[in-house]
Nucleic acid binder design. Structure first.
Lengths: 198, 198
DNA sequence: TTATGATGTGAATATGGATTCACATAGAGG
DNA sequence: CCTCTATGTGAATCCATATTCACATCATAA
């Protein structure tokens, strides 16, 4: 028998594994059997720690949120320079995606079916929260004079998110062939030119 | 009984309806019963015109591809000015999204499960084809001297796609509250500054 | 007008996964 | 060392959908 664990540790382990599967296959391809196998358990064991499938997905989204928001926090703490923080953030995203992290198909959960409105709402909140955090960074940049003040911070934040999403998609589609690090470096230059005060 | 139609017309009708549902709910929430109802048929009738669910999704993706590529063609034909064509294209995307068109969650099909590799591959091809077309427009712009020639056309094309995806997501999430037209107008200015030769 | 095939219908049937349940056992606390 | 409860297991069961099938009916063309 697989070694027993207390439910708190197990929950975290399962949620993490679920996020990984979710990132690989999207919520459509996500199923309890594979999840259980990926943590060395039998399907029914999952129910010792979660109410059911939706509960697992909910927990996975929590992990996702913490990880992504954590990325923003880390970038913020690493430098006082807001523009540099954004660049750092972008790079970290690239690294996370490269390591099969997540991000792309998670957001696809936003298109969750009617019945799973809660999941959808949660994903939307996470995305909105992310954009809001980036927006704040942009505002800081405007106050520090590095970012043009004649542009809308929210718009910039959405554009920033737009640098990540398609890259993640391409990475998922083309795999190794797509050099996300190089792409991100190039697209950053474009972004900088768009938003930096000359 | 619902009026009979010859299979060609019916197929088109069904594929169009399927695309609509897909855009609203994603492939996870897509089911034959709702599809049938949306065209005033009974579920089993769908099988008179399609092999099965995957076949329907395949046809819906065809409609999507034609529509999106058509947008690019239309923008191209409307003006000789490549940069203006891109702006037109962006605006048209916004309008398509606004009218509940599609785009966002379709691309989420890229995360189709293992078993549906064909669907996934097809979606990837469509996305790649879209980016390639935009890239060509960017190249034209570089040749005409409107777009900086020291930047990578492919990178610009991906960034362009990145202006649309998150906007579509937000539109889906926030609905009317998100003024996609206004957003697109603002983000276009950013994009222009990033890529236009001064 | 009528014969015929194509299209539509409703009632099965099939299937893949989630969920439940009765039973087994590890492992923490006394 | 013993007990008792939380955790793990395998075998059902349930359920939502896809899919099939026998039958009905419309559309068309001879």
């Amino acid at each position: 028998m697989t070694q027993k664990m207390n439910t708190e540790a197990r929950r975290e382990q399962i949620a993490g594994a679920a996020l990984k599967l979710l990132a690989e296959r999207g919520s459509e391809g996500f199923n309890i059997a594979d999840l259980a196998e990926s943590v060395g358990l039998v399907p029914s064991a999952i129910y010792r720690h979660f109410e059911g499938r939706e509960d697992v997905l909910d927990a996975a989204l929590d992990v996702f949120r913490d990880r992504v928001y954590g990325l923003v926090e880390a970038a913020r703490n690493e430098t006082q320079d807001p523009l540099q923080a954004l660049e750092l953030l972008l790079t970290r995203h690239a690294r996370l995606i490269e390591s099969g992290g997540a991000v792309p198909h998670i957001m696809a959960s936003m298109s969750a079916p009617e019945g799973h409105a809660a999941r959808r709402a949660k994903t939307e909140r996470i995305f909105a929260g992310y954009v809001a955090r980036v927006e704040e960074l942009v505002r800081d940049g405007q106050e520090s004079g590095q970012v043009r003040s004649d542009i809308n911070a929210a718009t910039v934040a959405v554009l920033f998110a737009g640098m990540i999403q398609p890259a993640a998609l391409l990475r998922h589609a083309e795999g190794e062939r797509f050099d996300i690090t190089a792409h991100v470096a190039r697209v950053w230059e474009l972004f900088r030119r768009a938003v930096a005060r000359d």
